[in-house]
Amino acid sequence: MDALHDDTLTLYDEAFASRFLLGTALYPSPTVMQEAIRAAGCEMVTLGLRRQNPAGGDGEAFWQILRDSGCRLLPNTAGCRSAREAITLAQMSRELFDTPWIKLEVIGDDYNLQPDPFGLLEAARELVDQGFKVLPYCTDDLVLCQRLRDAGCQALMPWGSPIGTGRGLMNRYALETLRRRLDVPLIIDAGLGAPSQAAEAMEMGFDGVLLNTAVARAHRPPLMAEAFAEAIRAGRKAYLAGLMQQRQTASPSTPTVGQPFWHRDGG
C-alpha cells in the first residue's frame, strides 16, 4: 500500500489516488452498483444520458447513489454516430452534471462498436475549444492517438478490445507502441474481462483502467470490483518495480556452486 502512497494519476491537472474507473450500467440493482463502486475504491464513474419520458421515475435513486458515492462523474456520449451528435450530447451533459469532463464516444460500426476516428477527432477538437476536458474513447491506432493529443486531449482511452467482449488486450504490439510513443496518460477502456488482463495493462505502463461489464455481469459484482482493484494495484506496482526481461534459455535461480551429488561425467 505504501509503495503507491504518492503515486497519483493526473488527468487535466487533477490528481486521483485510484487508477480504476468504473461504469455504472448493467448492474442487477442500484444497491449492488453502490457496493461495487465502494469495493472498487474508484474516484471516477462513467454514466450516460438517454431519452426520458416523464413517467419514468427510476433516475432519481440512481442519481442519488452516484452523488453519495463522492466520485467524480464522467458522462459519456455513448451511442453517438457523428461528431455533431456527440457534441450536442456533451453540451447537454455539461449542463446536467455541471462538469466539463466528457468521455467522448463516436461509434463507427455496429458490429464491433469501433470508434469512428474521423468523427472522434472532429468532435474532440470542437469540445476542447469549448473548454471540455475530453477523454476520447479511441482505437489503438498510433496516428489517431497522436492527432487527438495534438487536438488538446490531455489523456486518451484506447480500447483493449471491443466493448463488452471481455477479450482483453487484443493487440499488444499496438498498445505497447502507444505507450512508447505517447507521454499523455493512457487509460485502457473497454474489452477487459478478467483482473489478470487489467494487471497486464498496468504492467505495460498504462495509467489506468476503465471497465463496466466485467464487474456488473459477475455473479458477485462487489467481489469482482475488489479483484480488479487489487489487480490494478498489483500491475501498477510491478510496472514501477520494473519487470525482468524475458529470455530464451533457462537460468537457475538457486546457486550452482556447492551443488551436492554432482558428477563431472554424469555418472
Binding site: 461504469g23 455504472t24 450500467a25 448493467l26 448492474y27 452498483m33 462513467t46 454514466l47 450516460g48 444520458l49 438517454r50 431519452r51 426520458q52 419514468g56 433516475g59 440512481f62 442519481w63 452516484l66 458522462p75 459519456n76 455513448a78 450530447l89 447537454m92 446536467l96 452534471f97 466493448i163 473497454a190 476503465l210 471497465l211 463496466n212 461489464t213
Partner: peptide, 10 residues
C-alpha cells in the same frame, strides 16, 4: 425535441 436524463453508462 430531445429530452434526456441520467442513466447508467460505461
Amino acid at each position: 425535441i430531445d429530452i434526456v436524463a441520467p442513466v447508467g453508462g460505461g
